[in-house]
Computed example of a mutant assay.
Amino acid sequence: MSITWVLRPEDVARIRFAFSPMWELVASLRTLQQPARQSIHLPWLKAVRPRLAGLDLTELLALVPPAGYLADFVTPPPDTPMPDFAAELDRVRRTSPELAHAEAGELAGLAHAEAGELAGRDPAVLERFMADPEAGVARVADALEAYWEKCFAEFWPRVYALLERDVLGRSRQLAQGGARELFAGLDPAVEWTGERLMIDRPWCHQGGLHGDGLVLVPSAFYWPSVAVMSAPYQSMLVYPVLGVGTLWEQGPPPAPGALAALIGRSRARILLALAEPSTTTALATRMSLTPGAVSQHLGVLSGGGLTVGMRLGKQVVYRRTPAGDTLAGQP
């Protein structure tokens, strides 16, 4: 079974990348329910388990069961490349009661059909939500905000840095090799024929996009699976982020002694980290340095012809020059 999207030339031209703090937050609810599925996130789980006391996640877990369909309104597709959590939460709060009722109703129907076999799909909780979906959306948004503040906000910079590296690397891949090269390396569940994008998922759908292009969203907490959204939402494909195994590593990678002796340990680590383009903020998080210190080091590296900055929207993204690649030992 698979989803097949027909991409016209204008759809291919409108492929864009984004990442979403709300998507990661909601996906982490499944990690809470099925820790064995994502043992890679055990360091995060151990840190947040004690913080769950006092949080009422009952309604959220009914809308986001451990497997299968989840209520789409809690994960609106990102409408900018780098949305912040507050903006995405506001979009959730503005969900129409009719849409929320319909999506909760679909979950309730699945819960009854499965006779409660899947934990989290509690028909009584969903029916309470459906009785007053406007109030239900408000409660769910409040629960998302509380969960974010208590269990996720402090970890977001680390996740952000990983997602940013993936987006910058794949954007370069798309620019250099086109859609064929991009989709070939995205995930084994995704196949591109030159006209059709086929995604291996447990339900069938065939058709074109809806004139809105395609948003590609990397995810650490939905890893290793893929997910899709389509009408009435922006067409979106969620795929597993690269490098998720490094997410909870402590500290930056060490710098080789000779390179550190030549240009300094912090600058050597930054130069090595720029194997993939990155912003000052992401580098600061990864290097455990202040943004100001990273900016100073980048100034020296750029002055020496080893790195160069390029503006991407409101962000300045740094990458190594060929001379920087040579010094870092890369061909």
Rank of each mutant, 00 (worst) to 15 (best):
P83D: 09
D84S: 08
F85T: 04
F85L: 10
A87R: 14
L89F: 00
R91E: 12
V92C: 04
V92Q: 02
V92W: 02
R93P: 03
R94L: 02
R94V: 07
R94H: 05
R94S: 07
T95A: 09
S96N: 06
S96H: 11
E98S: 15
L99Q: 11
A100V: 02
A100H: 02
A100G: 05
H101G: 11
H101F: 10
H101M: 14
E103Q: 12
A104L: 03
A104S: 06
A104K: 04
G105W: 01
G105C: 06
E106G: 14
L107G: 00
A108Q: 13
G109M: 14
H112Y: 07
H112A: 08
H112E: 15
A113T: 08
A113G: 14
E114G: 13
E114S: 12
A115W: 00
E117I: 14
L118F: 06
A119T: 15
A119S: 13
R121P: 03
D122C: 08
D122I: 13
P123D: 11
P123Q: 05
P123N: 14
M130W: 04
A131V: 03
D132N: 14
D132I: 10
D132M: 13
P133A: 07
G136W: 00
V137S: 10
A138R: 11
A138N: 07
R139T: 07
R139N: 09
A143E: 03
A143F: 00
L144S: 04
E145Y: 00
E145M: 03
E145S: 13
A146N: 02
A146Q: 13
A146V: 13
Y147L: 14
W148L: 02
W148K: 01
W148C: 00
W148Y: 07
C151F: 02
F152T: 00
F152A: 06
A153Q: 12
A153N: 03
E154P: 02
E154A: 04
E154T: 10
F155N: 13
P157S: 10
V159P: 02
A161R: 04
L162G: 11
L162T: 13
E164N: 04
E164G: 03
E164Y: 05
R165K: 15
D166K: 09
D166E: 04
G169S: 11
R172L: 15
R172H: 10
R172I: 11
Q173I: 10
Q173F: 02
